[in-house]
């Protein structure tokens, strides 16, 4: 039994959208190439921010989202630049400038925060090595 015109139109549109849109937009609900864990990095990074009481603060507010693991190099969508560089060590000047900007722009009323970067790499002996670096950033505002 042949397909009706409506069936042919729907099947064609369904297949075309699910093949073309993911390649163009990469990740735009409900279309995606499902890019989680697609990037093979030599170094993995995570940046976390802690308040004066030691509690972890929002990665949304401090713009430290770990974008790289979920959507490596997104084509659309993200309106922010994360402090987390994904695959390299941060310099202290980068951390100070970023967090002070967040303090200023979001009017955050904390005397200081601690920013911590966790780096995971392959060591010279072939094993996986994790290192942590922590910086204190004071709120001048």
């Amino acid at each position: 039994m042949a397909l009706s015109r409506g069936e042919r139109v729907f099947i064609g549109a369904f297949v075309a959208l699910n093949v073309v849109v993911p390649f163009v937009a990469k990740d735009l609900y409900p279309f995606s190439v499902f890019p989680m864990f697609s990037k093979r990095s030599e170094t993995l990074s995570r940046v976390e921010v802690f308040g004066p009481d030691g509690a972890q603060l929002s990665s949304d507010v401090f713009e430290t989202l770990e974008l790289d693991v979920f959507v490596a190099e997104p084509k659309v969508g993200f309106l922010i630049t994360s402090l987390d560089p994904g695959d390299r060590a941060l310099a202290e000047s980068e951390v100070q400038a970023h967090v002070k900007r967040v303090f200023r722009e979001r009017e955050i009323d904390l005397p200081f925060v601690d920013a911590e970067q966790t780096l995971t790499t392959i060591g010279s002996h072939g094993g996986v090595v994790t290192t942590r670096v922590r910086w204190r950033v004071t709120n001048d505002g």
């Binding site: 990740d27 735009l28 609900y29 409900p30 279309f31 929002s58 949304d60 507010v61 989202l65 659309v76 969508g77 993200f78 309106l79 922010i80 979001r106």
Partner: peptide
């Protein structure tokens, strides 16, 4: 709802 960070859906576009 915090500051707008992204548009991740067709609705966002």
């Amino acid at each position: 709802c915090g500051p707008r960070l992204h548009y991740l859906s067709v609705l966002g576009l």
